[in-house]
Computed example of a mutant assay.
Amino acid sequence: MAGLNVSIAFFFLVFGVCQALRQLSKRLLSPGAYSCLARELAGSLQLCMSCLELRMLMEIGLWGGGFGPDVVLTLLFLLFAVHGASFDGASANPTISVQEFLLLESSLAATAAKLLAQGAGMVMGWALTKLYWSWELTHFHFIQNLIASECSSSIHTALYHAAFVEGTCAFFFHLVLLKLCQSHLMYQVPALAATVTFLTYTAGPFTGAFFNPALATATTFHCSGSTFWDYIQVYWLGPLTGMLAALILHQGNIPRFFQKNLLYRQKSKYKIPKARVAAHVEGDERRQKREGEKSNSEPCA
C-alpha cells in the first residue's frame, strides 16, 4: 500500500499547485484572460496529471499492488468530484468548449483560446508526470518507466466499434451535463463524477473511455498499435459526434446555426384558462358588432 499512498499524496500535491495557480492568476489577470486561458490551463494540467497517475495505477497496480478495481474506481470518483468542485467553471475538455460555442455561450475567439489553453495544459501535464515518474518513488513508477517506451494503443476492439463506444460515452456525459447545467454544484458534481465512473467502468476495456479529445491526445496518441488517423476517428470524431447528438436531443436544434426547433414544439410558458379564452372571444365579437352597426348608421360621403 506504500505505492498507493505515494500516488494519493501526488493527487493532493497536484490539486494544491493547480489551486494556487488559479488563485494567483485570478488576481493578476483580467477576468477574460483568466476564464479563457489561465483557468483552462490549470484545469487541464490538473486533469491530465491526475488521470495519467490513475491510469498507471489501473494498469500496474491491479497486479503489482494487489488491490482490486474497486480501489481505482473509488479514486476515480473522488478525483472527478474534486475536479468538478475546484475547476471554477473550466471545462478542460474540447467537446465542452465546442458545445458552449454552439449554444452561443462563447465566442469563436474565446473558444479558440480555450482550446489552445487546454492543449497546452495537457502537454505540460504529460511532461511533468513523465518527470515525476522518472524519480521512481515507487515500484509502480519503476515498472512504468520500463514499459513507457513500448506502450500499446488503448483501442482494443474494431475501429468502428471503438468510435461508437467513445461517441456513446460522450453522448451520455454531455446529456447529463446539459440536464444538470442549471443545478446547484452540490448535486451537479457527484452526478457527473458518478457518470464518468460508470462510463469508465463500462467502456474502459474497449477504448480506455477518455471521451475527452485533449486528454486522449496527451495520453495515448504516442503509443503504437494504431495510426494517427485511427486515433482521430476514435478520440476526436467519436466524442464530437456524441456531443452533437446529445445537444440536438436536448435542445432540438443547434442554436449557433439555426433557431428552428426540429424535435420539439414550442409551448407557451403560460396557459390561459378556457373560460377566459371564451370570454375574450365573445367580447371581441360584441365589439365588432357594435362597430359594424355604428358604421352602417353613418351617412355616406
Rank of each mutant, 00 (worst) to 15 (best):
L4E: 01
I8R: 07
I8T: 08
L13K: 04
F15V: 15
A20C: 13
R22E: 02
S30K: 14
P31F: 13
Y34N: 01
L37V: 11
S44E: 11
S44G: 15
L45P: 06
L47E: 06
L47H: 02
C48Q: 15
L54K: 07
M56V: 10
G61Q: 05
G64T: 02
G66C: 06
F67M: 11
L73K: 03
L73Y: 11
L78C: 15
A81T: 04
I96K: 13
V98N: 07
V98A: 14
F101T: 03
S107C: 05
S107P: 06
A110M: 02
L115W: 08
Q118K: 06
Q118M: 14
G121I: 05
V123F: 14
T129V: 06
K130R: 05
L131G: 09
Y132I: 00
F140D: 01
S154G: 07
I155W: 03
H161N: 15
A162L: 08
A162E: 10
A170M: 11
F172L: 15
K179W: 14
L180K: 15
Y187S: 12
V196A: 10
P205I: 09
T207W: 13
A209N: 01
N212W: 05
S224W: 08
L237R: 14
P239D: 09
L240W: 05
L240K: 02
L249K: 02
G252R: 01
N253C: 12
N253T: 14
P255C: 05
P255W: 07
R256H: 11
N261A: 04
L263S: 01
Y270Q: 11
V277C: 03
V277F: 13
A278K: 12
V281G: 04
D284Y: 00
Q288S: 13
S295C: 01
S297Q: 05
S297M: 04
E298H: 00
C300W: 01
C300T: 14
